[in-house]
Each structure stands twice: as C-alpha cells, then as structure tokens.
C-alpha cells in the first residue's frame, strides 16, 4: 500500500496549469493531504483568486497523478480560509519564477494592496531595477505586466497579494 508521504509527494508535484514552472506546492495552493475515515485520500487546495479558472483542472490533475501511483479513492476539497497570499510562494518557487522570466512578488503589507506604481521590481532578465508598470492586470489574475527600461524586455510580475 502506498504511504501518505508518497501520496503527498505525488500531489505536490502537480504543476500549476497557468504557470507550469511552479508546482501547486511551490505556489502554496496545496494545503493538506490526509487519509479520510473511509480509507480514501483527501487533498485540500485553496484558490489563488476567487475566480481562478484553474481549480477544476488542478483537481483533475491531482486525481490523475495519484491514479498513476495506484491511489484512486481521492477527494479534492477546496478551502477559502485562510485566504491565499503570495507570501505562501516558497523560496524555491520564487527562484523558479525568476529563472522562467517572471518577476516574483515582494512581501505583502498588512494594510491592503500595494499600488503597483509604487512597487520596485527587478527585471528577471537583466536584474535592473529600472522597470515600469505597463498594466496592473496581466495575462492571469495573479500577474501584472511590466517593462524593463534597461534591456527593454517586457515581463510578467506576480503582484504582491
């Protein structure tokens, strides 16, 4: 029989459908993996944003990944509290983002969202801090679009949230 640690490792390896360089564990979306009373597995995930369209796909990916290691009795539960924060993106996740060309988020503030015009973000390509905001709403709910004034590269930025 597969042990819980193996199941957890497998669930943690599921990539995020929108930023596939990150796993759902890197992103802080995977909250818990446990046995339920009936001997099945419960995987608990949390959405990044209320309207995150990837939740159904993540849920299916978890079930199929666990199916590959012979675990078929799987229930995926979604919890909302505590609300997801970019502070939950792991250090490894931040490094992966940067290498992939996406600027990782700075730590969040307690008193609400940071106006993105006031945020200093380094270019993931050339490391220059001379970058500007193009649009506060990017290709996915969690990203803004910026441009580097030094190397002229346009890049995504995971906004502190």
């Amino acid at each position: 029989m597969v042990n819980l640690e193996d199941i957890r490792t497998a669930a943690a390896s599921v990539p995020d459908p929108e930023i596939p360089v990150l796993t759902i564990e890197d992103l802080g979306v995977l909250r818990d993996v446990a046995w339920d009373d009936a001997g099945g597995v419960v995987v608990v995930i949390t959405p990044t944003y209320s309207g995150c369209p990837a939740m159904a796909e993540i849920s299916n990916d978890i079930k199929s990944t666990l199916g590959h290691i012979g675990v078929h009795d799987v229930r995926v539960e979604t919890v909302l509290a505590p609300a997801w924060s970019t502070d939950w993106i792991s250090d490894e996740g931040r490094t992966k983002l940067s290498t992939y060309g996406i600027a990782p988020p700075a730590p969040t503030r307690r008193d609400g969202p940071v106006p993105l015009t006031l945020v200093s973000v380094r270019c993931p390509q050339c490391n220059s801090s001379d970058t500007k905001l193009i649009t506060a709403f990017g290709s996915t709910a969690c990203k803004a679009l910026r441009k580097c004034r030094s190397c002229e590269e346009v890049f995504d930025h995971v906004k502190p949230y």
């Binding site: 944003y49 909302l80 509290a81």
Partner: peptide
C-alpha cells in the same frame, strides 16, 4: 458565519485591488 467570513476575507483583497485601478 464561517463560510461567509472566509469568502469575504478573500474577496476583500480582490475588491481592494479593483478600487485602486
């Protein structure tokens, strides 16, 4: 109501961002 509280805490972050824009 715990579910209403959870939905609201999450939504609060989102609408705060909408307001800025």
């Amino acid at each position: 109501d715990s579910q209403l509280s959870a939905i609201s805490a999450k939504a609060l972050k989102e609408v705060s961002y909408h307001k800025l824009h």
